[in-house]
Design a protein around this nucleic acid. Structure first.
Lengths: 133, 133
DNA sequence: TTAAAACCTACCATTTAGGTTGGTTTTAGT
DNA sequence: ACTAAAACCAACCTAAATGGTAGGTTTTAA
Protein backbone atom coordinates (compact mmCIF):
# COMPACT_ATOMS: atom_id res chain seq x y z
CA UNK A 1 0.00 0.00 0.00
CA UNK A 2 1.67 3.06 -1.27
CA UNK A 3 -0.69 5.84 -0.24
CA UNK A 4 -1.66 6.07 3.42
CA UNK A 5 -4.80 7.58 4.92
CA UNK A 6 -2.86 10.79 5.40
CA UNK A 7 -2.60 11.38 1.67
CA UNK A 8 -6.00 9.97 0.85
CA UNK A 9 -7.81 11.99 3.50
CA UNK A 10 -5.96 15.16 2.56
CA UNK A 11 -7.05 14.65 -1.01
CA UNK A 12 -10.66 14.14 0.02
CA UNK A 13 -10.58 17.29 2.12
CA UNK A 14 -9.18 19.21 -0.83
CA UNK A 15 -11.92 17.84 -3.08
CA UNK A 16 -14.55 18.79 -0.52
CA UNK A 17 -13.16 22.32 -0.32
CA UNK A 18 -13.06 22.44 -4.11
CA UNK A 19 -16.72 21.49 -4.23
CA UNK A 20 -17.44 24.34 -1.85
CA UNK A 21 -15.15 26.79 -3.60
CA UNK A 22 -16.56 30.32 -3.57
CA UNK A 23 -18.72 29.77 -0.49
CA UNK A 24 -16.24 31.30 1.91
CA UNK A 25 -14.70 29.42 4.80
CA UNK A 26 -15.87 25.88 5.43
CA UNK A 27 -15.54 24.49 8.98
CA UNK A 28 -13.65 21.19 9.20
CA UNK A 29 -16.42 19.85 11.37
CA UNK A 30 -18.67 19.78 8.32
CA UNK A 31 -16.02 18.28 6.07
CA UNK A 32 -15.27 15.60 8.64
CA UNK A 33 -18.95 14.71 8.83
CA UNK A 34 -19.42 14.63 5.06
CA UNK A 35 -16.26 12.61 4.51
CA UNK A 36 -16.84 10.43 7.55
CA UNK A 37 -13.38 11.09 8.96
CA UNK A 38 -12.59 11.90 12.59
CA UNK A 39 -12.34 15.67 13.01
CA UNK A 40 -9.41 15.28 15.36
CA UNK A 41 -7.46 13.19 12.89
CA UNK A 42 -8.15 15.68 10.13
CA UNK A 43 -6.78 18.44 12.33
CA UNK A 44 -3.52 16.52 12.47
CA UNK A 45 -3.34 16.25 8.71
CA UNK A 46 -4.20 19.83 7.80
CA UNK A 47 -1.20 21.82 9.11
CA UNK A 48 1.05 20.74 6.24
CA UNK A 49 -1.54 22.04 3.77
CA UNK A 50 -1.91 25.42 5.47
CA UNK A 51 1.81 25.87 6.00
CA UNK A 52 2.37 25.31 2.31
CA UNK A 53 -0.38 27.77 1.42
CA UNK A 54 -2.61 25.24 -0.32
CA UNK A 55 -5.46 26.21 1.97
CA UNK A 56 -6.19 29.12 4.29
CA UNK A 57 -7.57 28.76 7.78
CA UNK A 58 -9.64 31.38 9.59
CA UNK A 59 -9.92 31.03 13.33
CA UNK A 60 -12.88 31.86 15.48
CA UNK A 61 -16.61 31.56 15.07
CA UNK A 62 -17.65 31.60 11.44
CA UNK A 63 -14.19 30.48 10.49
CA UNK A 64 -12.98 27.39 8.68
CA UNK A 65 -10.83 26.60 5.68
CA UNK A 66 -10.89 27.48 2.01
CA UNK A 67 -8.72 26.85 -1.01
CA UNK A 68 -6.10 29.51 -1.64
CA UNK A 69 -6.46 29.18 -5.42
CA UNK A 70 -9.01 27.94 -7.92
CA UNK A 71 -9.44 24.14 -8.01
CA UNK A 72 -7.71 23.83 -11.37
CA UNK A 73 -4.47 25.09 -9.86
CA UNK A 74 -3.89 22.05 -7.64
CA UNK A 75 -2.06 19.03 -9.01
CA UNK A 76 -2.86 15.80 -7.18
CA UNK A 77 0.85 15.02 -7.28
CA UNK A 78 1.65 18.11 -5.24
CA UNK A 79 -0.94 17.24 -2.61
CA UNK A 80 0.31 13.66 -2.32
CA UNK A 81 3.98 14.60 -2.24
CA UNK A 82 3.28 17.05 0.57
CA UNK A 83 1.31 14.64 2.70
CA UNK A 84 3.16 11.42 1.91
CA UNK A 85 6.67 12.82 1.82
CA UNK A 86 7.37 11.57 -1.68
CA UNK A 87 6.01 9.08 -4.16
CA UNK A 88 9.21 7.05 -4.50
CA UNK A 89 8.66 3.30 -4.93
CA UNK A 90 11.96 2.47 -3.18
CA UNK A 91 14.01 4.14 -0.46
CA UNK A 92 17.08 4.93 -2.54
CA UNK A 93 15.08 7.40 -4.64
CA UNK A 94 13.19 10.25 -3.01
CA UNK A 95 16.15 12.08 -1.54
CA UNK A 96 18.15 14.41 -3.75
CA UNK A 97 21.18 12.22 -4.01
CA UNK A 98 21.24 8.46 -4.23
CA UNK A 99 23.54 7.36 -1.40
CA UNK A 100 23.20 3.63 -2.09
CA UNK A 101 26.65 2.23 -2.76
CA UNK A 102 25.19 -0.22 -5.25
CA UNK A 103 23.73 2.62 -7.32
CA UNK A 104 26.47 2.46 -9.92
CA UNK A 105 25.96 -1.18 -10.78
CA UNK A 106 22.35 -1.74 -9.67
CA UNK A 107 20.46 -3.62 -12.37
CA UNK A 108 17.08 -2.53 -11.05
CA UNK A 109 17.71 1.17 -10.43
CA UNK A 110 16.73 2.37 -13.93
CA UNK A 111 13.48 0.43 -13.63
CA UNK A 112 12.62 2.09 -10.30
CA UNK A 113 13.63 5.51 -11.63
CA UNK A 114 11.41 5.14 -14.65
CA UNK A 115 8.49 4.05 -12.48
CA UNK A 116 9.13 6.99 -10.18
CA UNK A 117 8.93 9.33 -13.16
CA UNK A 118 5.79 7.60 -14.37
CA UNK A 119 4.16 7.97 -10.97
CA UNK A 120 4.92 11.66 -10.65
CA UNK A 121 3.82 12.32 -14.19
CA UNK A 122 0.56 10.46 -13.70
CA UNK A 123 -0.47 12.29 -10.54
CA UNK A 124 0.77 15.63 -11.81
CA UNK A 125 -1.48 15.21 -14.81
CA UNK A 126 -4.57 15.29 -12.63
CA UNK A 127 -5.84 18.48 -11.03
CA UNK A 128 -8.41 18.94 -8.31
CA UNK A 129 -11.03 20.22 -10.73
CA UNK A 130 -10.78 16.92 -12.65
CA UNK A 131 -11.91 15.06 -9.54
CA UNK A 132 -14.80 17.34 -8.62
CA UNK A 133 -16.71 16.70 -11.81
CA UNK B 1 7.84 3.53 0.03
CA UNK B 2 5.85 1.10 -1.96
CA UNK B 3 8.28 -1.80 -2.44
CA UNK B 4 9.84 -3.32 0.66
CA UNK B 5 13.15 -5.17 0.96
CA UNK B 6 11.24 -8.42 0.52
CA UNK B 7 10.31 -7.60 -3.06
CA UNK B 8 13.57 -5.85 -3.87
CA UNK B 9 15.75 -8.63 -2.50
CA UNK B 10 13.67 -11.32 -4.21
CA UNK B 11 14.14 -9.49 -7.48
CA UNK B 12 17.89 -9.25 -6.96
CA UNK B 13 18.09 -12.95 -6.19
CA UNK B 14 16.16 -13.73 -9.36
CA UNK B 15 18.47 -11.51 -11.38
CA UNK B 16 21.49 -13.22 -9.83
CA UNK B 17 20.07 -16.63 -10.71
CA UNK B 18 19.31 -15.38 -14.20
CA UNK B 19 22.92 -14.29 -14.59
CA UNK B 20 23.96 -17.80 -13.59
CA UNK B 21 21.34 -19.50 -15.69
CA UNK B 22 22.65 -22.72 -17.22
CA UNK B 23 25.33 -23.23 -14.56
CA UNK B 24 23.28 -25.64 -12.50
CA UNK B 25 22.31 -25.03 -8.90
CA UNK B 26 23.66 -21.91 -7.23
CA UNK B 27 23.99 -21.94 -3.42
CA UNK B 28 22.23 -19.03 -1.66
CA UNK B 29 25.39 -18.46 0.33
CA UNK B 30 27.07 -17.19 -2.82
CA UNK B 31 24.10 -15.10 -3.87
CA UNK B 32 23.89 -13.58 -0.39
CA UNK B 33 27.57 -12.68 -0.54
CA UNK B 34 27.38 -11.20 -4.04
CA UNK B 35 24.23 -9.26 -3.26
CA UNK B 36 25.39 -8.29 0.22
CA UNK B 37 22.22 -9.55 1.87
CA UNK B 38 22.05 -11.68 5.03
CA UNK B 39 21.76 -15.37 4.09
CA UNK B 40 19.30 -15.95 6.89
CA UNK B 41 17.03 -13.19 5.71
CA UNK B 42 17.17 -14.48 2.15
CA UNK B 43 16.13 -17.91 3.37
CA UNK B 44 12.99 -16.30 4.77
CA UNK B 45 12.15 -14.68 1.47
CA UNK B 46 12.75 -17.64 -0.84
CA UNK B 47 9.97 -20.09 0.15
CA UNK B 48 7.28 -18.11 -1.68
CA UNK B 49 9.35 -18.32 -4.86
CA UNK B 50 9.92 -22.07 -4.61
CA UNK B 51 6.33 -22.82 -3.64
CA UNK B 52 5.16 -20.96 -6.71
CA UNK B 53 7.64 -22.83 -8.92
CA UNK B 54 9.61 -19.75 -9.95
CA UNK B 55 12.79 -21.37 -8.72
CA UNK B 56 13.83 -24.89 -7.79
CA UNK B 57 15.86 -25.79 -4.73
CA UNK B 58 18.12 -28.81 -4.41
CA UNK B 59 19.06 -29.87 -0.91
CA UNK B 60 22.33 -31.35 0.22
CA UNK B 61 25.92 -30.70 -0.67
CA UNK B 62 26.33 -29.41 -4.18
CA UNK B 63 22.76 -28.12 -4.04
CA UNK B 64 21.35 -24.64 -4.33
CA UNK B 65 18.73 -22.90 -6.41
CA UNK B 66 18.12 -22.35 -10.09
CA UNK B 67 15.46 -20.75 -12.24
CA UNK B 68 12.69 -23.11 -13.33
CA UNK B 69 12.37 -21.41 -16.74
CA UNK B 70 14.49 -19.25 -19.01
CA UNK B 71 15.02 -15.66 -17.78
CA UNK B 72 12.73 -14.21 -20.44
CA UNK B 73 9.77 -16.07 -18.94
CA UNK B 74 9.67 -14.06 -15.71
CA UNK B 75 7.71 -10.84 -15.53
CA UNK B 76 8.90 -8.47 -12.81
CA UNK B 77 5.24 -7.83 -11.99
CA UNK B 78 4.72 -11.48 -11.11
CA UNK B 79 7.77 -11.53 -8.83
CA UNK B 80 6.70 -8.36 -7.04
CA UNK B 81 3.06 -9.40 -6.68
CA UNK B 82 4.17 -12.68 -5.12
CA UNK B 83 6.55 -11.14 -2.63
CA UNK B 84 4.68 -7.92 -1.88
CA UNK B 85 1.15 -9.30 -1.90
CA UNK B 86 -0.12 -6.88 -4.51
CA UNK B 87 0.87 -3.61 -6.10
CA UNK B 88 -2.27 -1.70 -5.13
CA UNK B 89 -1.69 1.96 -4.27
CA UNK B 90 -4.62 2.01 -1.81
CA UNK B 91 -6.22 -0.60 0.42
CA UNK B 92 -9.64 -0.66 -1.24
CA UNK B 93 -8.12 -2.15 -4.39
CA UNK B 94 -6.06 -5.34 -4.27
CA UNK B 95 -8.78 -7.67 -3.08
CA UNK B 96 -11.21 -9.10 -5.61
CA UNK B 97 -14.16 -7.05 -4.52
CA UNK B 98 -14.12 -3.47 -3.34
CA UNK B 99 -15.86 -3.51 0.02
CA UNK B 100 -15.52 0.21 0.70
CA UNK B 101 -18.98 1.66 1.21
CA UNK B 102 -17.89 4.88 -0.43
CA UNK B 103 -16.90 3.04 -3.61
CA UNK B 104 -20.05 4.04 -5.45
CA UNK B 105 -19.56 7.77 -5.02
CA UNK B 106 -15.80 7.99 -4.43
CA UNK B 107 -14.32 10.78 -6.54
CA UNK B 108 -10.82 9.39 -6.31
CA UNK B 109 -11.46 5.70 -6.98
CA UNK B 110 -11.15 5.88 -10.80
CA UNK B 111 -7.83 7.67 -10.37
CA UNK B 112 -6.47 4.92 -8.08
CA UNK B 113 -7.81 2.20 -10.36
CA UNK B 114 -6.12 3.70 -13.39
CA UNK B 115 -2.85 4.02 -11.49
CA UNK B 116 -3.16 0.42 -10.34
CA UNK B 117 -3.57 -0.68 -13.96
CA UNK B 118 -0.62 1.49 -14.96
CA UNK B 119 1.55 -0.04 -12.25
CA UNK B 120 0.76 -3.63 -13.16
CA UNK B 121 1.21 -2.91 -16.84
CA UNK B 122 4.57 -1.26 -16.26
CA UNK B 123 6.06 -4.06 -14.20
CA UNK B 124 4.52 -6.76 -16.38
CA UNK B 125 6.25 -5.18 -19.35
CA UNK B 126 9.66 -5.94 -17.92
CA UNK B 127 11.09 -9.45 -17.82
CA UNK B 128 14.09 -10.76 -15.94
CA UNK B 129 16.21 -10.97 -19.09
CA UNK B 130 15.72 -7.22 -19.59
CA UNK B 131 17.43 -6.58 -16.26
CA UNK B 132 20.36 -8.92 -16.75
CA UNK B 133 21.73 -7.07 -19.76
C1' DT C 1 30.95 -39.95 7.99
C1' DT C 2 31.13 -35.32 7.11
C1' DA C 3 30.26 -30.97 5.23
C1' DA C 4 27.29 -28.17 2.75
C1' DA C 5 23.25 -27.09 1.34
C1' DA C 6 18.03 -26.29 1.67
C1' DC C 7 14.37 -25.92 4.75
C1' DC C 8 11.78 -24.59 9.02
C1' DT C 9 10.05 -22.10 13.33
C1' DA C 10 10.16 -18.95 16.83
C1' DC C 11 11.44 -14.74 18.39
C1' DC C 12 12.56 -9.68 18.52
C1' DA C 13 13.43 -4.61 18.04
C1' DT C 14 12.18 -0.61 15.58
C1' DT C 15 9.33 2.08 12.80
C1' DT C 16 5.10 3.43 10.80
C1' DA C 17 0.14 3.87 10.64
C1' DG C 18 -3.77 5.50 12.36
C1' DG C 19 -5.43 7.40 15.40
C1' DT C 20 -7.23 9.68 20.58
C1' DT C 21 -7.06 12.96 24.48
C1' DG C 22 -7.14 17.14 26.20
C1' DG C 23 -6.33 21.09 25.79
C1' DT C 24 -5.24 26.75 24.17
C1' DT C 25 -6.17 30.61 21.25
C1' DT C 26 -8.85 33.40 18.27
C1' DT C 27 -12.99 35.59 16.84
C1' DA C 28 -18.03 36.65 15.50
C1' DG C 29 -22.20 37.41 17.35
C1' DT C 30 -25.17 38.56 21.33
C1' DA D 1 -18.11 41.28 28.58
C1' DC D 2 -19.62 36.58 27.51
C1' DT D 3 -20.26 32.60 24.89
C1' DA D 4 -19.93 29.41 21.31
C1' DA D 5 -17.51 27.91 17.48
C1' DA D 6 -13.79 27.52 15.12
C1' DA D 7 -8.60 26.80 14.21
C1' DC D 8 -4.50 25.36 16.25
C1' DC D 9 -1.29 22.48 19.13
C1' DA D 10 1.23 18.70 21.83
C1' DA D 11 1.41 14.49 24.08
C1' DC D 12 0.16 9.97 24.18
C1' DC D 13 -1.31 5.30 22.59
C1' DT D 14 -2.15 0.69 20.15
C1' DA D 15 -1.52 -2.44 16.48
C1' DA D 16 0.66 -3.86 12.49
C1' DA D 17 4.39 -4.03 9.39
C1' DT D 18 9.29 -4.05 8.57
C1' DG D 19 13.59 -6.02 8.67
C1' DG D 20 15.67 -8.78 10.55
C1' DT D 21 18.26 -12.81 14.04
C1' DA D 22 18.77 -17.35 16.42
C1' DG D 23 18.84 -21.93 16.43
C1' DG D 24 17.90 -25.48 14.71
C1' DT D 25 16.43 -30.16 11.28
C1' DT D 26 16.73 -32.61 7.03
C1' DT D 27 18.80 -33.97 2.82
C1' DT D 28 22.54 -35.37 -0.04
C1' DA D 29 27.11 -35.51 -2.59
C1' DA D 30 31.70 -36.65 -1.91
Amino acid sequence: MMISTKGRYALRVMIDLAQNYGNGYVPMKEVAKRQNISLKYLERILPVLTKNKLIEGLQGKGGGYRLTYTPDRYRVGDILRLTEGDLAPVACLGCEENTCERAGTCKTLPMWEEFYRLTNTYFDGIVLSDLVK
